Amino acid sequence: MLKRAAVALMLAAGLAFAGSAAAKETKVGFVYVGPIGDHGWSYQHNQGRLAVEKELGVKTSYVESVSEGADAERVIRQLASSGHDLIFTTSFGYMNPTVKVAKQFPNVKFEHSTGYKRADNVTTYSARFYEGRAIIGAMAGKMTKSNVVGYIGSFPIPEVIRGIDAFTIALRKVNPEATVKVVWVNSWFDPGKESDAAKTLIDQGCDIISQHTDSPAPLQVAEQRGVYGFGQASDMIKFAPKAQLTAIVDNWDPYYIERTKAVMDGTWKSEDTWDGLSTGMVKMAPFGDAVPEDVRKMAEEIKQSIIDGSFHPFQGPIKNQKGEIVVKEGEVLSDKELLGLSWYVEGVEGSIPK
């Protein structure tokens, strides 16, 4: 009880500290957009933080549920001014606050997830989640009976649009009749909105639900309504043992350990990292019991072809919503084009919110 009370007091102050005294000279901080109990995005980043503690014995701290904007800037500055040597800011909307604070603390190293602005003491990193979307899109194409599949979007930024497009391209390669309906919730983590979005999509005829939001709420709705879905960021099978077909798992552990080591040994430098299935930064959870053997085999083949480089989720021919060829056969969208993706491919219904 005393231990729980102590932790509660630290959380109330805005910071939770953990770690051993083995490496007091290195202090690492993390800023999360959601609660560490979201079982999705922030949960997985926190697993990476725990891996750093376990592997390196360094002292770490975190602040959870930090809004993007002024709150983020305040929290990042607080960490930078309180002796942290390395700070990971783990949401797209933290980009400008991170860069702003970094200018004021040139001796502190900053790592921003999913952004594109760098400086001498600011590096960027992300994962090629779209590779996993291609796998689950193909699975959905094989398993849908209604040919209508739902997708819950957070914010209409390139990262999320890229995932919707990769999912839809793969879906229609195996099932040209299938279409994707998208509901935007304008939040990374809001179980109520995510649940309502899932219900709306199912009411519109969707028999498979995918998501780029962070709670297991959509999967729980799928379980209740007798349809299928995919976990987001972590393996969510315990929330939907019958509904989850697989999950795209974000594996930050090796990256966080490597980058912390670089600060400790003085080799850290500003760079950009964008890894995927081939390095293990993106993983796929085990298949659910409902996945037929032929679908498992197909999914594994797609995964291996992405890993060995013989297949790219955005290789042509690719059509836009108007049916126009935008990526010719034999061509592949460049990383620069993928990072700025702002249009739907053929098969996605509706328009992108402005």
Rank of each mutant, 00 (worst) to 15 (best):
A198Q: 11
I202C: 13
G205I: 12
G205T: 13
C206V: 06
C206M: 03
D207A: 05
I208R: 03
I209W: 02
S210E: 10
S210Q: 10
S210M: 10
Q211E: 11
H212Q: 13
T213N: 04
D214I: 06
P218S: 06
Q220G: 01
A222R: 07
E223K: 03
E223C: 03
Q224D: 15
Q224R: 15
G226S: 09
G226A: 11
G229F: 02
G229V: 00
G229L: 01
G229T: 02
G229C: 00
F230C: 09
G231F: 13
D235I: 06
D235Q: 07
D235A: 08
I237Y: 14
K238H: 08
K238R: 15
A240Y: 09
P241R: 11
K242Y: 02
A243M: 09
L245T: 01
T246F: 05
T246Q: 07
T246C: 12
A247F: 12
I248C: 11
I248Y: 02
I248S: 14
V249A: 03
V249G: 05
V249T: 04
V249L: 03
N251V: 14
W252R: 06
W252L: 09
W252M: 12
W252H: 08
W252A: 10
D253N: 15
D253I: 01
P254S: 11
P254K: 07
P254A: 09
Y255I: 05
Y256S: 02
Y256G: 02
E258Q: 15
R259D: 02
K261F: 02
K261V: 05
K261N: 10
A262V: 05
A262F: 04
A262R: 13
V263N: 04
M264W: 05
M264L: 06
D265R: 08
D265Q: 09
G266H: 11
G266D: 12
G266M: 07
W268L: 09
K269P: 01
K269H: 14
S270C: 03
E271R: 15
E271G: 04
W274N: 14
W274Q: 10
L277Q: 05
L277G: 03
L277F: 04
S278T: 12
S278A: 15
S278Y: 00
T279H: 02
G280K: 08
M281Y: 00
M281F: 11
V282C: 02
M284R: 08
A285P: 01
G288M: 08
G288A: 07
G288Y: 10
D289I: 00
D289G: 04
V295N: 03
M298T: 10
A299T: 06
E300F: 00
I302D: 05
Q304I: 02
S305W: 00
I306P: 02
I306T: 04
I307D: 00
D308I: 05
D308T: 03
F311D: 02
H312L: 11
H312T: 10
H312M: 11
H312K: 13
P313Q: 08
P313C: 07
P313S: 11
P313N: 08
F314L: 06
G316S: 05
P317L: 04
K319I: 08
N320Y: 07
Q321N: 03
Q321I: 12
K322Q: 15
E324Y: 06
I325Q: 13
I325Y: 04
V326C: 10
V326N: 09
V326M: 12
V327G: 09
K328H: 12
K328M: 12
L333Q: 13
